[in-house]
Computed example of a mutant assay.
Amino acid sequence: MKINALQDLKKVQKQLAEAHEKAKAEEAARLAAARQREAEANLFVRAVGVVQRLPLHDQASISPPAPAPVAVQRQKDEEAVLRDALSDGFDVSTLLDTDDALSFRRPGIGIDVTQKLRKGGWSIQREIDLHGLRSDEARVALAEFIRIAHRQGLRCLRVVHGKGLGSPGKTSVLKPKVHSWLIQKNQVMAFVQAKPAEGGAGALLVLLKPAG
């Protein structure tokens, strides 16, 4: 169990490093494009000088059509998902708990929290099964699931990623990715491997921060 846990940790660290480098490259490209637009605007002002609008004569005043309604909440939700997906503010040294079972807790969260979660101290309020989904589909589905559950004030969730018994090498493809995705979600306080009756090595019990 410890060997598999350490292998999962290395995969998580590698994935987070790649995500961090990608975010840095995208930010550098964005800044370069902004500087280019500013330079072009300044060049136009220097070449043309002050511009004044010509007065309009003999034209009817027609009100422009009302703009189409914007799905403000949906836009905010999508921005929140993107923002959380790039978060890596966590201490990887807490990924392994003091026992053999893989678990995670945020810095400042005591080991008693993961112990209570493993013993069923919180009732499972909702679950998601990622079986049969491609990696990109599972990532989006999990991010949406966590976001909505947190907004509704739910605390304890079950995430089923499977044991990978049907995968090559009998290793779950989604398992290490789900660990990484959950760690990157700021709403997640901790997670532990589920008890055998609740999915065992093929599922996780996830504890969310209180809403608000």
Rank of each mutant, 00 (worst) to 15 (best):
G199S: 07
A138E: 02
K119G: 05
R147A: 09
A190K: 03
A60M: 12
T98W: 12
G120D: 01
P196R: 05
I62A: 11
D88C: 09
V140K: 13
V48D: 02
E26Y: 09
R158D: 02
R74L: 14
A149Q: 06
D97C: 12
I148T: 12
Q36P: 03
K10H: 14
S93A: 12
T114G: 00
S61T: 11
K116Y: 08
R155I: 05
N4H: 10
D91W: 02
M189Y: 12
D58F: 10
Q59V: 12
L208F: 04
N186G: 13
V188F: 02
E38Y: 07
D99L: 11
L31E: 13
V113M: 00
Q13L: 15
R147W: 00
H131G: 09
D91Q: 01
A17M: 08
T98G: 14
I148P: 02
V160G: 04
K2E: 12
I111P: 09
G108Q: 03
R74G: 15
K177P: 03
L130G: 00
I109D: 00
V160A: 08
S61C: 10
S135C: 12
I111E: 15
P168N: 05
A68P: 10
L204H: 05
A5S: 12
A33P: 06
K170I: 03
G200R: 05
Q36H: 12
D8W: 08
K2N: 10
S87T: 08
K119Q: 10
A194S: 06
A101C: 07
P176Q: 05
G132A: 05
V12A: 11
H161D: 06
L205D: 03
P64V: 07
V173I: 05
R30K: 14
A66Y: 01
R83Q: 06
K119M: 06
L204T: 02
S180E: 15
L31T: 08
N186D: 13
G121T: 00
L208E: 01
S167M: 11
Q152P: 01
S135A: 14
S61D: 11
N186P: 10
D129Q: 04
P67I: 01
L43Q: 14
E137D: 04
T98F: 13
L130Y: 00
G164Q: 02
V206Y: 11
